[in-house]
Design a protein around this nucleic acid. Structure first.
Lengths: 228, 228
DNA sequence: CATGACTATATTGTCGACACTTTTTGCAGA
DNA sequence: TCTGCAAAAAGTGTCGACAATATAGTCATG
């Protein structure tokens, strides 16, 4: 029962997924207000449904809500990115460590197969690595930790926010091959059951990733500076 | 604007706080079902209010909800405790590290004063240390990290669940003085701006605490075994 | 012209009712 | 007595309306 792939059952679910997609991909601007009435007419559902969806978006840290005032989409900032990635580094580092302890040999074999298949696709030019492989890779490591609290915190709490930063800053370009090698090394460490190394490599991998995104974000911010 | 002490504004808030208290303190049993209709008549509010409150309890990881079926209070188990404390160790360890970096001198002075005042109260026999001091102490370190994501994750995500384990297992007895010394040492490390040591001491402190709770929990579980 | 109070508007919070799903109950047949 | 199905009951999901609060606009006053 994966959290990411579970399909919508109730109307609230569908609205939640729709809104989340629109926010992560930037169709709804960062920092903009989410009006319950407006969304309910737009999506042809009752306000109660929209309300529930917004509540769940708040749990994902994608929107902020204030009583009697309303909800706003979070805004992306350099400071926010750093804080987010500090937490991510600690949690995913821990996930990698636990994965080295708790993944079955079968899990590891599957993960290796995944990497290989992604590698092939990239060489064929079918897709960039980030979109195709990165999400799946991290997702599997997280699941591999087998710690339900950790999984919930990462998947519900920070993962979609990470995606929001990446998607909206257009992270699909470079770092493709280097990221792939880093992934290989992490899996190798897990395969060797070397918890210490697995954690360290994952932490570095995430740190590199943050530096990469931050460069892009600062470009964006300085562009906005020029325009204003 | 503390998350713990914010006072109820809306009816949903009040219901949420009431339910949370009842769950954490065990007036509503672990594992029991939360019926929306039942609670709405009991608390004299509409079902929408109860629904919203339950949603927020789910965000705190205090209840689990399934579509079309309903919400249940989480149940306490030895495995759950271990998973929870593993996450807590990583996150609060990180909080201590960041607190050593980001707390102001004033923050640290206040924290020392807090410890001293708690120490005095304990010597007077006014209260046990756990209840009076522990929560505040950890709360301040978490805030001292000044990382909003980390703060949100800890306060909203795991702190009340930790409290639930502690309260329901009657954690107020021993470990009072040792915990106090551990707190002193952590603050000392923070005061020296020794990030490495602060994190390590905090991690150990939490580890000891877990061992302590786990002993109690296994006693409880083996008692239940005998009875059945 | 700036400022402050007041009104009007828009938005969120709460409610009770209905629709749909799940669970229980009761009965028929083996 | 046990099993399987159908109807009834209970519970959650969704809806539109009203109440309470916040925001915008207006006007009077300094």
């Amino acid at each position: 029962m994966s959290v990411l792939l579970e399909q919508p059952i109730t109307s609230s679910d569908k609205t939640f997924y729709r809104l989340r997609k629109d926010i992560v991909e930037g169709q709804i601007c960062a920092g903009s207000k989410l009006s319950e009435t407006e969304l309910s007419t737009k999506y042809q559902v009752s306000r109660a449904v929209v309300r529930e969806a917004i509540n769940r978006l708040e749990t994902c840290n994608l929107v902020e809500r204030k009583p009697n005032i309303g909800a706003r989409v979070v805004s992306l900032s350099s400071e926010g990115l750093i804080e987010l990635y500090q937490v991510r580094e600690a949690l995913e580092g821990m996930a990698a460590r636990q994965a080295a302890r708790n993944m079955t040999d079968q899990d590891i074999a599957d993960l290796n197969a995944l990497l290989t298949s992604h590698s092939a696709k990239v060489k064929d030019g079918q897709s960039y690595y980030q979109e195709a492989g990165d999400v799946d890779f991290h997702y599997r490591i997280i699941q591999g930790s087998k710690n339900q609290h950790l999984i919930a915190l990462l998947i519900n709490g920070i993962y979609h926010l990470v995606r929001m930063y990446r998607v909206q800053l257009g992270m699909a370009g470079p770092r493709v091959t280097t990221a792939f090698d880093e992934h290989r090394n992490i899996v190798q460490a897990i395969s060797n059951r070397d918890e210490e190394l697995a954690e360290m490599l994952m932490r570095r991998h995430i740190l590199y990733s943050m530096n990469n995104i931050q460069r892009k974000l600062q470009q964006t911010e300085s562009n906005q500076e020029e325009r204003s």
